[in-house]
Amino acid sequence: MIKLFSLKQQKKEGEACPKQGTQKKATAAQLRITKDLNELNLPKTCDTEFPDANDLLNFKLIISPDEGFYKGGRFVFSFKVGPNYPHEPPKVKCETSIYHPNIDLEGNVCLNILREDWKPVLTVNSIIYGLQYLFLEPNPEDPLNKEAADVLQNNRRMFEQNVMKAMRGGYVGTQYFERCLK
């Protein structure tokens, strides 16, 4: 049985001695993200940028595809890892304006593991692979940018040209895209 009260009393008496090592302990999210990043195994088309090395919870991912529709482009994603990581997925947004069936013009990304299929066993690495896959295989079945998806489904050639137009910087329909070619 715990003798709560006597112990607290003792504690009070003992408090005269200076407290040592009252340093804040690492949170579960910190332990996990340290592990994730230390094990980060990036393909050569991906790079990370940490504005503040002490803040492992906010960083950018730069994807520069070397094949597929988006070859030659440079796309920046922001990662925000919450205190509840890995029980909640990081919040990922695309900061480059992009013509893509699964990424809308506000930068929201439709990737199953970022929302409904997220599991705590997944890592930052899994998300990066997922994003890279979106560039190689845009998926018109589950669109976020419906116009882009329709074009991809009906006229692959036209889609390719639209992607090129957008990456060079210019209008696709009424929408303006900033240049993101390397």
């Binding site: 690492a26 340290t34 980060l40 990370t48 090395a53 492992l56």
Partner: peptide, 18 residues
């Protein structure tokens, strides 16, 4: 990594270039 004065601090991580 560690915590110094209640703030997170990265001591050294070799695998991430930045």
């Amino acid at each position: 990594t560690t915590n110094v004065n209640g703030k997170q601090m990265t001591l050294y991580i070799a695998t991430v270039p930045s």
